[in-house]
């Protein structure tokens, strides 16, 4: 099949970028979107041109590395699908696809389609951890967790930290990511010791990094490959309110 691509090319954060047209006339419908980009890059390199820089790792929807906005939608048009899991058979012969990076002040441009998502790491470092004793590993299931909370915690733990929620949000808010991390630990006894400090610090860090406020558009839930619900954001707000005593 033939696919027309308009790909964002940008040398670095100091050089303005632009969309560049590429046409591939022999795309195999069974290729994933990223395999098609590999295919394009192989050609570009054979022609002595600079390949398109893009992030990827597991290519099975679990690592959160891939980050492409296709025709204005983070991870492309299909729900619960990271872009590495999107296959070209979902497109029609002759389709045009605009490929852009995540755009947010808190995710600075590195090159082409690659942005720096370490702001998420700093939100995690601010409170997305639990304290455990070092030494021999504890017995599994030594701390009982009821099924209701275990299920909810598991749903929230599904977040792969890709940043699509920020990319799709009209406000560039990181509330879904941060809410998922806070809610996951708030539903587990292991999360209790740092519970209040965690939410205050992570919410602060979110603003510090330059992410926008949340206007409850819920676009994040629509694009999230892990189907994290915005109830995690509601939960984060309850947690924050309950942590008033920890606020300085």
């Amino acid at each position: 099949m033939t696919i027309h691509l308009k790909i964002w090319r940008q040398k670095d954060s100091n050089t303005p970028g632009r969309l560049v047209d590429y046409t591939l006339d022999d795309v195999n419908p069974d290729m994933s979107f990223l395999e098609m980009l590999d295919w394009l890059n192989e050609r570009l390199m054979n022609e002595g041109k600079e390949p398109v820089e893009f992030d990827h790792d597991c290519r099975e929807g679990i690592c959160g590395s891939c980050n492409l906005v296709l025709n204005g939608m983070a991870h492309g048009p299909y729900e619960a699908t990271a872009v590495c899991q999107l296959h070209m058979r979902k497109y029609k012969d002759g389709d045009t696809i605009v490929v852009e990076p995540w755009r947010a002040k808190a995710f600075p441009m590195i090159k082409d389609l690659v942005v720096d998502r370490s702001a998420f790491d700093r939100i995690m470092a601010a409170g997305g951890y639990i304290s455990v004793n070092t030494g021999a590993p504890a017995d599994a299931n030594a701390i009982p967790v009821d099924k209701y909370n275990a299920d909810l915690a598991f749903d929230y733990a599904a977040c792969i930290g890709c940043g699509a929620c920020v990319a799709a949000c009209p406000n560039s808010s990181a509330s879904l990511f941060t809410g998922a991390k806070i809610s996951q630990l708030a539903h587990l006894p292991q999360g209790n010791p740092e519970r209040k400090r965690r939410v205050v610090r992570m919410v602060d860090q979110m603003a510090e990094e330059g992410f926008g406020d949340c206007s409850n558009y819920a676009e994040c839930e629509a694009v999230c490959p892990a189907e994290i619900s915005i109830t995690s954001i509601a939960k984060m707000r309850r947690e924050y309110f309950n942590a008033l005593s920890e606020i300085e």
Binding site: M73, E79, E100, A104, K105, S215, E219, E221, A222
Partner: peptide, 26 residues
């Protein structure tokens, strides 16, 4: 101020932007 913050948080706009629909409340 939420609206001003939003403008600051994405200095470079998307060339193409679309809502995914589904759970979105846009």
């Amino acid at each position: 101020s939420i609206w001003l913050e939003r403008r600051r948080a994405r200095p470079e706009k998307y060339e193409v932007y679309a809502t995914r629909g589904g759970a979105s409340r846009q």
